[in-house]
Design a protein around this nucleic acid. Structure first.
Lengths: 351, 351
DNA sequence: CTGAAAGCGCTTACAG
DNA sequence: CTGAAAGCGCTTACAG
């Protein structure tokens, strides 16, 4: 007796396999595709032979004939940013549950421009972009997808007019933060790391400006940023350096709004080290609501991105788009963030 | 003039495309495949038409003829564990640099058993497993891959005899930890969260036992675990609860070895909250060397998994395996971890 | 159920 | 360079 693992080579075609089973190619094909009208014994024979030989039909032959590929291309800004990876993870789960497999590519700046071409060549049924991309490159790719009629959605990229988009309302996030801090009596705000030429930053600055204006405050008057004083290497260290600078200043802001949780955690630690109490003397708010928020004392107030909801909206949209004609209108799905209030923010105490 | 985005539909075959360009299918095909012996003007015409029409040749036709797919299947335990995602990220970067695209699937417990079958049907050129899997299922899949002659490597799964494996030497990690703490004078060790029916835990316990024995210490005598007292929901909270229990005990260990950084951070915070000084009264060592280690005070001593090296070894092995006949012998690549010493561990001070 | 045939879109070897 | 042809492995419609 020859054990299966000692077989010299795998069977490579339905023709060869049909000969092995002793049936016609048509019959085998019908069993493989769960078609009706076959004797139970025939089905059993084929299944048995599949297990014996490990025969795996070549998917490319069926795909060439026009069978849907069940592939979805995912183009990511990177695989290292926590919130991006979480979105990928949630999306992948949705796709897997519906029988789709994810093709993953990272759009590195120096990387191939033909990334979407590869996806199209493999006849993916949809493409998801997650993150911030060069607007010109993205627009070009979207145009290509439109021509091919391939459904697509852009997650987390706020300034794309040509494509359906699911994006966090960062303006609303800042409104929530300002509302919270303003309600606690704060009127002067330090910005920690909210600078630079990124859309996610621009959106937040605009949101801050609007939120302050709604309360009769002027952005230039009541916010201060010392970001230019330091080079940002690690977010945490950057937060520490900024806090050290602010702690030294007279008339420093009473509330600090950070670009992310790491920066907020760094600032909080440095303030505390210098004897500035949180939240009695300064309040701090982070962004992303990562687990670090619960690992520092006091725990960090932070904006939750609602990753799961974002992924669900994107997944449902894209799965519904498959097989339908592309609509001309670009749809914007806006995700409302949620401020999670914890111990790092508290009422203003007059000094 | 019709703008490209208003074209009614994309060209779907080289035949149609060749008609559009006014060349023969053979000529077009030769341009697309960068074959020599073509006039520069012909190449230019085809390239121009590609840009105009957005024509993307159907990859499945070439793949059906036997062209290598440039696909690599990656089967992950999950997409939420930080170290697993980092390995995926590093691998993806290696693959992309060599022109390979990653097909990603997560092997959820209730998920499809046909996961590897799908990869094989798409004729992936190699398969990488990352994480811990059900040994029986993994063995079955490896056997299938052997029969198909598909190169494969298993990362981070320590007990697989049938396949090439790249795995962290967790025994060596524990030797490094014990060596460090023993050198500081510690003789009684508390274990934080190092329990349960996982290979990564078993390996560490064996490593601890051996490391202690080498120093004339007996595991049962000089270690203590209170894991059974609590249900593990969040690692951080689990660490806190354990520290609270240990702090109350008389004759408590002077050094604590945690299953991961979150547990270590929780324990450190709780010890400090209860007035137990770190490292003066207790030393703490984490595992994974995550960024949290640098965000707490004192900073956490921790074991670095050498993720980048792991990924590089796995990637180089698998890329070298592609196109070669499978070797019968299973190769074990062992990765040596590196203990990063920080402020949370210090010399034993007699009380 | 079988068996012969067509066709998906490509690449390639060949004669001109 | 062109043009006609074969073949990759599958599915499917058809006659028996």
């Amino acid at each position: 007796m020859t054990s299966p693992s000692q077989r010299p080579r795998a069977i490579r075609s339905t023709a060869e396999f049909a000969r092995y089973v002793g049936l016609s190619r048509s019959a085998v094909s019908r069993v493989l595709n769960d078609q009706p009208g076959l004797r139970a014994s025939t089905i059993a024979r084929v299944r048995q032979a599949m297990a014996e030989t490990g025969f795996t039909p070549n998917a490319h032959a069926a795909l060439l004939r026009g069978k849907p590929s069940s592939l979805i291309g995912v183009c990511l800004e990177n695989l290292t940013t926590h919130s991006l990876v979480r979105k990928l993870s949630e999306l992948q789960e949705f796709f897997a549950a519906r029988g789709y497999t994810a093709l993953v590519e990272v759009d590195r700046p120096g990387g191939s421009r033909q990334l979407v071409q590869q996806f199209l060549a493999l006849r993916v049924q949809a493409i998801v972009f997650i993150g911030q991309f060069d607007p010109a490159v993205l627009t070009e790719r979207i145009a290509l997808l439109r021509r091919h009629g391939t459904p697509h959605v852009v997650v987390d990229h706020s300034s794309c007019r040509d494509a359906p988009t699911v994006t966090l309302d960062r303006g609303a996030a800042m409104e929530q933060v300002v509302s919270h801090l303003h309600g606690l009596g704060h009127r002067r705000f330090g910005l920690l790391g909210i600078s630079g030429d990124f859309q996610t930053v621009t959106d937040r600055l605009e949101g801050l400006r609007a939120a302050l204006a709604r309360r009769g405050l002027e952005f230039a008057q009541c916010t201060r940023s010392l970001d230019a004083h330091h080079v940002r290497q690690s977010h945490f260290e950057f937060g520490r350096l900024l806090a050290a600078d602010f702690a030294r200043q007279s008339g420093r802001p009473s509330a600090f709004i950070a670009v992310n949780d790491e920066t907020a955690a760094g600032a909080q630690l440095e303030f505390q080290r210098l004897g500035v109490r949180v939240p009695e003397e300064v309040s701090i708010v982070g962004f992303d609501n990562r687990d670090i928020c619960q690992m520092v004392r006091p725990q960090l107030t932070s904006v939750d991105q609602q990753v799961e909801r974002t992924a669900r909206v994107a997944a449902e949209f894209i799965l519904a788009s498959i097989g339908r004609p592309l609509t001309r209108a670009s749809l914007l799905h806006t995700i409302e963030p949620q401020l999670i209030v914890r111990g790092s923010s508290g009422p203003l105490i007059r000094r």
